[in-house]
């Protein structure tokens, strides 16, 4: 939870932050060039994913490879397009629920014997 990490800090720094408000709120940005480069990487990973899908020899390790590649795409979009790389105090607000959601998917799969 984003606010928690923020709030646990000493009273002094918090007061400074709240008073600083928007003056202190400088948003670092990736440039448009970075955005385009990321789009290219996303496209390439997608192409690789589809290629892996068609390679018979990789059928046994298809799932782990796909998981890694889609996780990479996920992190790129969330980190750069959604600014989470810069909005550090919003990370917990997303990754907390995401962790619980992922855990529930894995638990449901385990309950239905997926990993046996």
């Amino acid at each position: 939870m984003a606010g928690e990490t923020h709030g646990v800090g000493s009273g002094g720094s918090e007061a400074a932050l709240t008073h600083g408000g928007h003056e202190a709120h400088v948003e670092p940005h990736a440039s448009n060039r970075t955005y385009i480069a990321i789009a290219l990487v996303l496209g390439v990973i997608t192409a690789l994913e589809v290629m892996v899908f068609y390679v018979e020899a990789l059928a046994r390790v298809l799932v782990p490879i796909l998981l890694v590649m889609s996780a990479a795409k996920f992190v790129l979009v969330v980190g750069f397009y959604m600014h989470l790389k810069y909005d550090t105090n919003l990370r917990g607000l997303f990754f907390g629920p995401l962790a619980i959601a992922t855990a529930i998917i894995v638990a449901m799969m385990a309950l239905y014997g997926y990993f046996l």
Partner: peptide
Amino acid sequence: TIINLRAPGMTFMRL
């Protein structure tokens, strides 16, 4: 509301 509208000095551990 609770994350963003706390009065100055109202840290999480003072809520």
